[in-house]
Computed example of a mutant assay.
Amino acid sequence: MAKLRRGMAGRGARFLKDWSLPRQLAGESPMSTAARSTTSENLRPRLEQADRVGTSICPFCAVGCSQLVYAKNGKPIHIEGDPRSPVNQGTLCPKGAGTLGVLLSPQRINKVLYRAPHATEWEERPLDWAMERVAQLTKQARDETFVERLPDGKVVNHTIGIGSLGGATLDNEENYLIKKLFNGGLGMVTIENQARI
């Protein structure tokens, strides 16, 4: 028991000696070394390990906040706001600050998964196959549901068999082109944007 007390007393004395507050209360200036401790002396900048810094744009909304992506050995280790950006001036909202977690999540799907009709299992497919399938099914749905004229003869040239839900990260120019392609080219009526949800 005495040994335990001596050990605790020794740790307590080291703690009080190392802790900056007692030294400052004893009269040492907080602008001097009194504000330092063993812990603070051993701290290193968290981004010191990065061997590259790249720029990116936050993927979560159409504001387009700039980000600095710190990487080590080709893998991102930290993401923060870019202070050079006139948009966000180095700040990020909670969603943007969580970009690294989304990027490195083990649950993130980064390959094409396909489940055939009535199947219970997903299977990997090549991206080219998926893009071709989307194009074929879009054309098939449009061809099967396209209406040129209403029963009264009014020209409508539209389909309600397919629709579009755009992402919040799309900017005005991208939305303009999507509207032109989907509405004018394919005749889609149902066009919505996730930013309104």
Rank of each mutant, 00 (worst) to 15 (best):
M1V: 11
M1D: 15
A2M: 14
A2D: 14
R5M: 13
R6K: 12
M8W: 15
M8Y: 15
M8T: 09
A9M: 14
R11L: 13
A13L: 15
R14I: 03
F15G: 02
L16I: 14
L16P: 06
K17T: 15
W19G: 03
W19K: 06
L21K: 08
P22F: 06
Q24W: 04
Q24P: 03
L25Q: 14
G27I: 05
S29I: 10
P30L: 09
P30I: 07
A34S: 10
A35I: 05
A35C: 09
T38Y: 12
T39Y: 13
S40H: 03
S40I: 07
E41V: 00
N42I: 01
N42S: 08
N42G: 09
R44C: 07
P45A: 03
R46Y: 13
L47I: 15
E48K: 12
E48Q: 02
A50N: 07
A50V: 05
V53N: 00
S56M: 02
S56Q: 04
I57K: 04
C58A: 15
F60P: 09
C61G: 15
A62C: 07
V63K: 08
C65F: 08
C65H: 03
S66H: 04
Q67A: 06
Q67I: 05
Y70A: 03
A71L: 00
K72D: 03
N73W: 01
N73L: 00
K75V: 08
K75F: 05
D82Q: 10
R84D: 15
R84F: 12
R84C: 05
P86E: 09
V87A: 09
N88K: 05
N88R: 10
L92T: 06
P94R: 10
A97E: 14
A97T: 09
L100A: 00
L100V: 08
V102Y: 06
V102N: 03
L103M: 14
L103G: 06
P106G: 10
Q107M: 05
R108D: 09
I109H: 15
N110Q: 11
K111M: 12
P117M: 02
A119Y: 13
A119K: 08
E121Q: 11
E123T: 13
E124K: 13
E124D: 13
P126G: 03
P126L: 03
L127R: 07
L127F: 04
L127K: 05
L127T: 02
D128K: 05
D128R: 07
W129Q: 01
A130H: 11
R133F: 05
A135N: 10
Q136L: 04
K139A: 07
K139M: 01
Q140C: 08
V147A: 00
K154P: 06
H158I: 01
H158P: 00
T159Y: 00
G161E: 10
I162Q: 01
L165V: 14
A168M: 02
E174H: 12
N175T: 11
L177P: 01
I178R: 06
N183D: 04
G184R: 02
G185V: 02
G185C: 07
L186Q: 01
G187K: 01
G187Q: 01
M188H: 01
M188A: 04
M188W: 06
I191T: 00
E192V: 08
N193K: 03
R196I: 09
I197H: 10
